[in-house]
Design a protein around this nucleic acid. Structure first.
Lengths: 110, 110
DNA sequence: ACGTCTTGCCTAGACTTCCTAGGCAAAGGC
DNA sequence: GCCTTTGCCTAGGAAGTCTAGGCAAGACGT
């Protein structure tokens, strides 16, 4: 219950971020909040994981960012998907469902 | 398309191993084969990940091992679950399904 | 007899990712 | 004046996985 068990987030965080930004450009803080809210706190994104991840994704050309103003009119960096990002998201989503299917199959009793 | 995407295995490998051994005691090599076969190669366990993981799990008291003879009558180390291991497997299985549910919910279109 | 493939175990080192634990700044409420 | 919230960032450590090796014994073909 709540808070992703240990290292489970590993490898999926990037994909979750891409997905979060795929709906609409969002800034880092909002990404974390959205993921937590969307998953009823099952997934909690630490800032020490989030910001490095955003940097990574931008460096890989999957995201692009520009400074703007948040809903509360504060300085915030907004990220949006690039075309590469969109393709990567699609690929990773497929990979996830395959992987997740496989793990579930193994874990399933019987 | 086969082979667990990058870092996805992270965190789940231990659980998969516990599960594999929960049916019957198995040796390392057989564990890897069984997981691959069971998942149609979707999950491939490298030996460099497997053996350290087995060591870890035994050190944590979740597995216990003894030397024996494989089906082909070769020297092999068989692992079986301890009581702690069984409890951990149950807990991790729950954690996985929560996590997996959460991720799927995020990734799901719409 | 020889080489090669499969089974089977193990390790060192690099690599990646995540998290802990800080710091900084501005806005709002009390 | 102080504390909480929003918002971004970084350094350092911890942990897990993979690459790339090594070792040994049996099977199998030629």
């Amino acid at each position: 219950m709540a808070r992703s068990g240990k290292g489970l987030l590993h490898g999926t965080l990037d994909t979750l971020i891409l997905r979060t930004v795929s709906e609409a450009p969002r800034h880092g803080y909002a990404i974390a909040r959205w993921l937590e809210e969307r998953t009823d706190e099952a997934i909690r994104v630490e800032e020490g994981s989030l910001y490095p991840a955003l940097y990574r994704l931008e460096k890989q050309g999957l995201l692009r960012s520009e400074w703007g103003r948040s809903e509360l009119d504060r300085r915030a960096k907004f990220y949006h998907l690039t075309e590469n990002g969109r393709q990567r998201l699609a690929a990773e989503t497929r990979a996830w469902s395959e992987f997740s299917e496989a793990v579930s199959r193994v874990l399933r009793p019987g």
